[in-house]
């Protein structure tokens, strides 16, 4: 069994007086899909954000590929997110002024890809997700599900090593949800990427290799329970 690629150990994080995470653990190996489940407000999104270096935990360690994320400078963490991670967020994630195509091309442009090439790659991914027809539209003018798929395309377009997805299928019907999940699992298996997937839906979680349950800010490892 390979060593874990991303480990969050005993992570605590509060927002003011609200303890959102109270000693949560998460470890993901390369090529593995992990589902994070749990009741609403239990701290799933917060765990995801901490693991991705978006939020700094109050205590606990997050290591990626042997390096301690929590000790890196903001600029280094930004660079890491740009080059190694891909994101699908739960809320309002598309930049409203940019067209869908530009949104998908954005991570590539940020990484320095030329405009033409970025647009071509972005269009391929939109097509793979069945949303090539909305390429020229603004996020405000497409359906919630289409927007979600655009966001998925944007997360996959750079070929990230870890993909963080918060309710990626929340706005999708079963069929399209399944399509997205198949893309996630395939891209993880093909490229050895890891996927951290927050979801409420057991059918979506069933695509994962393993699930972690978060309850009241603490993670429960089901493998031990089994």
């Amino acid at each position: 069994m390979t060593a874990p690629l991303l480990v969050a150990a005993d992570v605590r994080r509060s927002f003011g007086a609200t303890p959102a995470l109270d000693g949560a653990n998460l470890s993901v190996r390369a090529g593995e899909v992990v589902a994070v489940m749990g009741p609403s407000g239990s701290g799933k999104s917060t765990l995801l954000h901490c693991a991705a270096g978006i939020l700094l935990p109050d205590s606990g360690r997050v290591t990626y590929d042997g390096a301690e994320l929590t000790a890196l400078s903001d600029a280094r963490r930004s660079a890491l997110r740009r080059s190694e991670f891909g994101f699908v967020f739960q809320f309002g994630q598309l930049v409203p002024e940019l067209t869908c195509l530009e949104n998908v091309a954005l991570p590539l442009r940020l990484a320095g890809t030329r405009r033409r090439d970025a647009a071509r790659t972005a269009l391929e991914w939109l097509a793979r997700l069945g949303t090539a027809d909305v390429a020229g539209k603004r996020p405000g003018d497409v359906s919630g599900g289409q927007g979600q798929r655009v966001a998925v395309a944007r997360a996959l377009v750079t070929g990230p090593r870890v993909l963080f997805a918060d309710e990626p299928t929340g706005a999708l019907d079963s069929y399209h949800g399944e399509q997205v999940m198949r893309l996630f699992t395939e891209s993880a298996r093909d490229s050895g990427a890891a996927v951290v997937l927050v979801t409420h839906e057991p059918r979506v979680a069933a695509y994962a290799d393993r699930e972690v349950v978060v309850r009241d800010g603490r993670s429960v490892d089901l493998e031990r329970a089994r």
């Binding site: 059918r203 979680a205 069933a206 695509y207 699930e211 429960v220 089901l222 493998e223 089994r226």
Partner: peptide, 20 residues
Amino acid sequence: ADDILDTQRAAHLALMRTLT
């Protein structure tokens, strides 16, 4: 009750994974 739930969820998900 959560423990019961988690145990059952693990079992259900294991089967669901196989089916998937």
